[in-house]
Design a protein around this nucleic acid. Structure first.
Lengths: 223, 223
DNA sequence: AAATAATTGTTAATAAAATAACATTGTTAT
DNA sequence: ATAACAATGTTATTTTATTAACAATTATTT
C-alpha cells in the first residue's frame, strides 16, 4: 500500500522555497485576524503573479473556495505537513561570529519543528557562554554533541579558510544537511544535502544589474 | 556606431552569478602561481560541469587555447570588464547589527571596484564609531550621506519590522540597487534593482530535503 | 431570472537553464 | 607520418520554471 507521506518528493525546488515564504506571509495574516486569503493577495506580498501562487497550491493539492479564497489556517497546516519534519529537526551553527549570531537572532523561536540548539566555536572566550539562548561548545566537541543531540543540519559560518575542514568533520559526525555561508565552495558526499550561499556573489550581481541599468539610461538619453 | 560596452546585457542571470564565482576561484589560483586553467578544473571547484563553464565563457566571448586551457589573468580581466563598473560602485549597510558587521567583514577590501563605505544605525552607542573600517552614521543622515558620497547600492540588515520604511527612505535618497536580507519582502519602483535573500527560507529548504532523504532511506530499507 | 464579475484550477505555450552531442584542433605517442 | 587522445567551442536536445489562456463556478447586480 502506498504511503501518503513522501508524495511531495517531486515538487519543483522553487516551489519549496515559495511555500516557506507563503507560510510566513500567512502566519502574519493570521496573527492580524484574517481567516481567508486570495491568490492575488499572497502574490502581491511576495511580488509574484497570482497564477504562480495558484499553480504552487495546485501542486500540493490544496483547493480554495471560489469567492472566499484559501483558508489560511488549513493552508498553514498543509504547508507544515509538507516541509516540516514530524519529529522536528535540530540545527547547529558552526562559527559563532557575527554571522552565526545573526542567524540565531533571525531564527530563534520562529519554528518549533526546526530549532538551532547548539553553536560551536574555537574561541575560548565564547565557549561555555549562551548566545541568544544557544549554548556555545568547543569545536572539538562537535562530533560528540551532534551524535548525542541528534543534530541533523549544520550551518557553516566559520572563516572561509576553515570551511572544508569543518565540512569534513560535520560529515564524519553524521550530519545530513549543510548550509555553507562561506564564500569557499565545499565538497560533500552525495548523501548529504548541501546548499551554498555566497554573499559576495549576490552583492556583485546587484552591482552588475545596477551598472546595466545605468548604461541603459545613458543610451536612452543620448539617442 | 555600436558601443561595445553594454553588449552583455542579455547574459543569463545564472551566468552572471557564476562569473563572479569563477573570478574568485581564478584569483585564488593566480595567487598560488597558476597561469592557466582547464574548464574541468574550474568546474570541479564550483561543483558544476565543465560544459557549463565552457558555455558561460563562450557567452562572454572568451577563448582558451587547446591543451593549455584558459589564461587566468586574461579571464579575470575580462570578467572584471563585464561585471565591474568602471568608476567603481559605493555600497552602504543599513543596520549595523550582527549581520551588517558580518557582511562588512566578509567583504572588506575584497574588490576595489565595489566597496562598502558607510553604515547606518539608530543605536547611539554605534553612531560615530568605525566598525571594521566602515564609519557608522545616524540613520537620520542616510539621504545626506548617500547623496554626498554617491552611494548607489544599499544592503538592508535592519530588523524585519523596519524593512519597508527603510527601503522607502533609501529609494527616496536615490539608491539604484537594494539587497534585502530581512525576511520581509519589500516594494520598490521598477527603476531600482532589488534582490531579496531570505535566510529562513533557505534553512527550511535544507530541512525539507533532509526530511525527503530520510524518508527515501526508510522506504528503501523497508522494501 | 439573466447578465456580469471575480475567482479558482488546469492545460497549453513559452522562456530560461542545463545537459548532451559532436565537430574541431592541436599534442603526444607509436 | 599516423593514430589516439584530450581539450575547446558550438549546436541541438532536454529539463525546469514561468506565464498565458481559458473553462468552471458562484456571488452579486440588474
Amino acid at each position: 500500500m502506498m504511503e501518503d507521506r513522501g508524495t511531495f518528493d517531486n515538487l519543483p525546488h522553487k516551489t519549496i522555497a515559495r511555500l516557506s515564504q507563503y507560510r510566513r506571509a500567512l502566519l502574519l495574516c493570521l496573527s492580524r485576524g484574517k481567516s481567508h486569503i486570495f491568490s492575488h493577495e499572497i502574490a502581491s506580498i511576495q511580488h509574484i503573479t497570482p497564477v504562480q501562487v495558484r499553480r504552487d497550491l495546485m501542486l500540493i493539492g490544496y483547493s480554495g473556495t471560489l469567492r472566499k479564497g484559501y483558508n489560511i489556517k488549513e493552508l498553514i497546516n498543509l504547508i507544515g505537513n509538507i516541509i516540516d519534519s514530524e519529529e522536528g529537526i535540530k540545527v547547529a551553527i558552526v562559527g559563532m561570529g557575527n554571522l552565526g549570531r545573526a542567524l540565531i537572532n533571525y531564527f530563534s523561536g520562529k519554528r518549533h519543528k526546526l530549532s538551532i540548539i547548539a553553536g560551536f566555536d574555537t574561541n575560548p572566550d565564547k565557549i561555555g557562554n549562551t548566545m541568544n539562548g544557544v549554548p556555545c561548545y568547543s569545536a572539538t566537541r562537535m562530533r560528540e554533541i551532534i551524535e548525542k543531540e541528534g543534530i541533523q543540519i549544520a550551518i557553516i559560518t566559520v572563516p572561509a579558510e576553515n570551511a572544508s575542514q569543518t565540512a569534513n568533520e560535520l560529515v564524519a559526525a553524521g550530519i545530513k544537511g549543510l548550509l555553507n555561508y562561506t564564500p569557499k565552495p565545499i565538497d560533500v558526499p552525495e548523501y548529504v544535502y548541501l546548499e551554498e550561499y555566497d554573499m559576495i556573489t549576490t552583492l556583485e550581481k546587484v552591482a552588475f544589474y545596477v551598472k546595466m541599468k545605468t548604461l541603459e539610461e545613458e543610451n536612452i538619453t543620448t539617442i
